[in-house]
């Protein structure tokens, strides 16, 4: 490695992909995230929790879209307080809740727009290979797509940033079961074939356990515990307790 590359000298392998320490997010006087701490070394970490527990607020804080206090370190470097575009250029990509594709841009324009700031392994053609469905719809506008297609587009848009950390907020929301299965397979293969760490917010426990290595539980803006995905999969009582009426049993 060349001496001019400090990241290599700092041995990134020892640094956690994402380390959140005592993070607070406030909306006016309401606190959505309170003293949340979280560690994602490598691989895939799922965050589960009921509605309104602050999962989206946490993601928005990591991407710089809402102000926060505390500490957010990306491979050891503090990113809290940076504007969203700087965070994105450092390798954090976001697949937000509700997809948020741009209604007046075509599929192709989405991909070309995203493919500028960090040119890496991914290209629009690579995305079309990953999601052949998108290629058929490349000239369609963002809102002419089905929910599943919008999700593919949001993921494609994020991958083109060549992220070292991918944030996904409830990617299965509103998708048909068959599409959810395909998505799980896609995410697993992405996690296996790239270096990318994934933070996955999910209310679908089965999907979370299926895709993630470990699972963090969020209650009232706080991360209360983290456990291996297999442990949660085996503990039915815990699942019930965590998700209450939203529980979706995880088959044996």
């Amino acid at each position: 490695m060349r001496a001019s590359k400090p990241a290599a000298a700092r041995e990134p392998a020892t640094q956690a992909a994402l380390a959140i320490d005592r993070l607070d997010v406030r909306y006016g006087r309401a606190r959505a995230v309170q003293q949340a701490s979280l560690l994602l070394e490598r691989g895939t970490l799922a965050i589960v929790g009921r509605n309104g527990m602050g999962k989206t607020s946490l993601c928005n804080a990591v991407t710089g879209m809402v102000p926060s206090s505390g500490s957010i370190r990306l491979f050891g470097e503090e990113i809290r307080g940076l504007p969203p575009h700087r965070i994105a250029r450092r390798g954090v990509a976001y697949v937000p809740q509700g997809r948020r594709v741009w209604r007046s841009l075509t599929v192709d324009e989405h991909l070309r727009l995203a493919h500028r700031f960090r040119r890496g392994e991914w290209t629009p053609d690579g995305i079309y290979e990953l999601f052949p469905r998108l290629k058929q719809r490349r000239h369609n506008g963002g809102t002419q797509l089905s929910g599943g297609e919008q999700q593919m587009l949001a993921i494609g848009r994020a991958l083109l940033l060549d992220p070292s950390l991918l944030l996904m907020d409830e990617p299965t929301e509103g998708l048909a079961p068959i599409i959810v299965e395909q998505l799980a397979a896609t995410l697993r293969s992405l996690a296996a074939r790239t270096e990318m760490a994934i933070l996955l917010v999910e209310q679908n426990l089965r999907f979370a356990v299926d895709v993630a290595d470990s699972v963090a539980v969020m209650v009232n803006g706080c991360v209360v515990r983290t456990m291996p995905a297999a442990a949660l999969a085996a503990d039915r009582a815990l699942q019930q307790q965590l998700m209450g009426v939203h529980a979706q049993g995880v088959g044996s």
Partner: peptide
């Protein structure tokens, strides 16, 4: 044009545009 694409995306959802690396 590229800047036009950014302007249209910014009209639709400017926060997502920023989160895609564009300096708003």
């Amino acid at each position: 044009t590229r800047i036009g694409m950014m302007i249209r995306a910014g009209v639709d959802d400017r926060m997502m545009l920023a989160a895609t690396g564009v300096n708003m």
